[in-house]
Design a protein around this nucleic acid. Structure first.
Lengths: 345, 345
DNA sequence: TCGCGTTTAGAAACCGGTTTCTCAAGTTCA
DNA sequence: TGAACTTGAGAAACCGGTTTCTAAACGCGA
């Protein structure tokens, strides 16, 4: 079975290629009899149009890309499916790519998407911002815009007015502030801050929110309780375990900047012979599915993730040359469950 | 900044388009001076080749698609990243699409990929097999093969010799058999089987494995302990809770056919006032990350997920017309952690 | 200096569609 | 019955690259 072209179909049906194209497109009058004849030929030859040829002349490529650092985090997966749900109607193709946190790879993907003449590229999650990165991103963004593509930063701050991009953020710093305030209002004053990569936008903002809340309540921040680092289960477990095993149970709560970290911290506390939440309260961030799986169910800062994805997709695909709305901020809030209680004296 | 074409570059550099194309391709001798001249023009005009035009003449589209029912399950995410890791080298594009479990959508995506002249399409996970579905899949598979694409079933049984596809499976029935045997060897005889959609290949096989192990040990299967249904947290919690609240604590172990279900069951058991694992042992399936987050850490049937993804990608992209190896079966095994102990009498 | 092989580069065909321009056939109205 | 108008369909240009075919320029030995 050889691949058949539109010319094969035309020959088989005894019409011109233009007519076949018209039947395919459906946006030009074709007599009913001719149409059925063509359709039958298409059927018989098992003809399928070549998307590349179509994109080449039609110019619109119907491709949307979503880029995250990893596919294995529920947060990203959720955003991606939010985008995909919105996008995959009307025969649009949605491409989900991961970069393994490699900034280089992110720019590479951007270049690839520019080659593809993608309709939109959605970059999700924080990034370690350097001047050099800023420059390259600015160039790529302009390049994408030049071929009619739109760039969306999702859960990542704007790069300034010289980078043509739509920004969809959530109250990241505010969420950390609210979470910390929640712990303080329950009577905690010695609060471990676990996770958050310094220098990376997401982590920095959350740490800032923590500090702001502490300052507002006049509580000094003990730098020994600050435990920044990679978002990893192992890291979190070890850090908490170390401190507890050293006999330093000098905190009553842990604010983990990620639910996974919260889960690992929970294990560490228990394995050290303490109880959650009686001896140590734990607060997470992201409110991902795992929050429900943990026991006790995890109190966590909720991010409207699907909404984030949908909004990003909506703004990415909004019609028109100039962009109507180019900055959206979504709210976050603390979801109270069972892992935070007042400290027992 | 208007998009520039290869002809603009040629004019700017004072050479022919053929020369520019050669500089781009790098597989044809071009004098050093000419090359630098062209490269400078490319730089100055900020030229990026159109991937569609390239695919149209070059015929190879460098696109691999991976299709799962949802992006939110760690199992699928892991397979996808396995595929992507293998695939995204050498400038290939990897497209991750979800179907929301819609069989229709799956076939639709297949059609789209055929239009894209995709190099390979990888279908992941079980499916509810109907004769009608089989027929349509067979047609699509042949269509894809006709344009040089390869179809891979990953974690899904073969559709028979009339469907040209590569199959990468794991010992699904065997894993359920091993898991059940593990429980039996620890002294359990009344084992709830939780989850598994009947009629869907994945669930059916796991249920079969359970029954086979029970039969081998001469233990009658109590149909009242069979609790098939959607793979959902809510469902699992409710079913276990119902039975326990009705005073029917007539089982000593739960074999959940998915780790998420296991986690929910764990909650239900505890909320009903019982202990895990002392009163009820729990065994999961998939050995996803959540197994480590649960407390006690979940004993689970391990699937070599990344290996599954990598193998699928490797076989999908193996060069040559005829397929060398078209069926691979990967092993599964029980990973023992803390959620299964002998029943206390 | 001539003849021959080797680089290097241009002209043009081609990939497979869409779309514009053009015209023949059929319909309506005076 | 003929002019004006509508409808349907073909020819050919075009999208933006790659590749084949061809030829000019160059180097080198005789």
């Amino acid at each position: 079975m050889a691949r058949s072209t539109i010319r094969d179909v035309a020959a088989h049906a005894g019409v011109s290629v233009a007519t076949v194209s018209r039947v395919l497109g459906g946006n030009y009058p074709v007599a009913a009899r001719t149409r059925t004849k063509v359709l039958r030929s298409i059927e018989e030859l098992d003809f399928v149009a070549n998307a590349h040829a179509r994109a080449l002349s039609g110019s619109s490529s119907k491709l949307v890309a979503i880029v995250t650092s990893t596919m294995n985090a529920p947060f990203y997966a959720e955003v991606a499916s939010g985008v995909e749900a919105y996008t995959s109607v009307e025969g649009r193709l949605c491409m989900y790519v991961s970069t393994n946190g490699d900034v280089q790879r992110e720019l590479e993907v951007l270049g690839l998407m520019r080659e593809q003449r993608a309709e939109a590229v959605i970059l999700v999650g924080g990034v370690a911002m350097t001047p050099e990165y800023h420059d390259r991103m600015a160039r790529y963004a302009r390049g994408l815009a030049a071929v009619g593509g739109r760039l969306v930063f999702c859960g990542r701050p704007s790069l300034g007015p010289d980078v043509p991009a739509v920004v969809v953020e959530y109250e990241n710093e505010g969420g950390a502030h609210a979470g910390t305030s929640h712990l303080i209002s329950r009577g905690h004053r010695r609060i471990v801050l676990l996770g958050g990569i310094p220098g990376q936008t997401t982590g920095d903002d959350r740490i800032a929110g923590y500090r702001r809340a502490m300052a507002e309540h006049g509580i000094p921040v003990d730098e020994a309780l600050m435990m920044p680092g990679q978002f990893g289960r192992r890291f979190a477990y070890d850090r908490i375990r170390e401190r507890l095993d050293a006999g330093l149970h000098d905190f009553t709560a842990i604010f983990a900047l990620d639910d996974i970290l919260a889960g690992a911290a929970m294990h560490a506390v228990r394995d050290a012979g303490l109880r959650v939440p009686e001896d140590v309260s734990i607060l997470g961030y992201n409110d991902s599915e795992i929050a429900l799986d943990l026991y006790p169910a995890l109190t966590s800062v909720h991010i409207p993730v699907r909404e984030l994805g949908r909004t990003a997709a909506r703004l990415a695909l909004q019609p028109g040359e100039g962009v109507v709305r180019d900055h959206v901020m979504l709210g976050t809030h603390v979801v109270v469950r069972d892992s935070v209680v007042p400290p027992v004296r």
